[in-house]
């Protein structure tokens, strides 16, 4: 009888996932309809709800398009970056980002070499790859001895290869973690403040879509560093890719 209970639990979980996906899909369809009708704020809201329930690259691409068409460059660039985060092979997000950055005259974020490497695959793929390669290497080295099998000629090279892949994925994983601190300015002429206060002195104003790295936070403010300066910005004016 124990296995009956297990099957029932799996079925319930699967049903919950399917229901959740169904609602996210509904919002996606509503977003498509609103976009077609030119109701851009409503379309953006629908796509955003869909993305919150189930983040998907296509949903985020559409969200970016809706935001761009209603004049919110920062939110559009963030949405496309999120789409590329989920699926680096999605050419639409990349193309839209290039277009938007040319039109809005903003730069791409500057990535370090390990961050660039981490963009070759989706973030979760690096995590699984790291785990799989590590334990494959360890298994190839340890298990034959334990089970008293003779080591074949391919055991060691394969273990070495797996370990090498693991070392590489380590840097890519560091890059993934590092890239979660990259974000984009959402508001036009967002003030960059000297102190994390509402009445802080304004150092400069930032363009919507400008990339920056979050270094720390305090209250409702984030300390960010752009390519040229650093300062505090309100949480509502800055969006992180991995958020």
């Amino acid at each position: 009888m124990r296995w009956h209970r297990q099957i029932l639990l799996v079925a319930v979980l699967f049903g919950a996932v399917i229901c959740r996906a169904g609602t996210a899909n509904d919002y996606f369809k509503v977003g498509l309809e609103m976009s077609g009708a030119g109701q851009l704020p409503e379309a953006a809201m629908a796509f955003e709800k869909s993305a919150q329930m189930q983040p998907a690259s296509g949903t985020l691409v559409n969200l970016g398009i809706a935001e761009w068409r209603r004049g919110r460059a920062g939110a559009a660039i963030l949405a496309w970056e999120k789409a590329r985060w989920i699926d680096p092979f999605d050419s639409r997000a990349g193309a839209d980002l290039k277009f938007a950055r040319t039109a809005a005259q903003v730069d791409e974020p500057e990535l370090k070499w390990f961050e660039t490497a981490s963009t070759w695959l989706p973030p979760n793929a690096w995590a699984w790859l790291a785990g799989a390669s590590l334990w494959l290497a360890v298994g190839l080295l340890v298990l034959p001895g334990i089970f008293r099998r003779r080591k074949a000629g391919w055991h060691s090279p394969l273990a070495a290869l797996a370990f090498g892949i693991f070392l590489f994925t380590l840097t890519a994983n560091v890059g993934v973690v590092s890239r979660t601190q990259i974000g984009f300015v959402l508001k036009k002429n967002a003030p960059l403040l000297l102190t994390p206060t509402r009445t802080g002195e304004v150092i400069s104003t930032l363009t919507a879509g400008e990339p920056a790295r979050q270094l720390r936070s305090r209250g409702n403010f984030l300390f960010i560093r752009t390519q040229t300066e650093s300062g505090w910005i309100g949480r509502d004016a800055f969006g992180l890719v991995g958020d």
Binding site: T195, P196, T197, R198, T199, G200, E201
Partner: peptide
């Protein structure tokens, strides 16, 4: 004006 904002910032911090 800046001085008033500085004092308010100090109070907020």
């Amino acid at each position: 004006q800046r001085a008033a904002d500085d004092f308010k910032s100090a109070a907020e911090l």
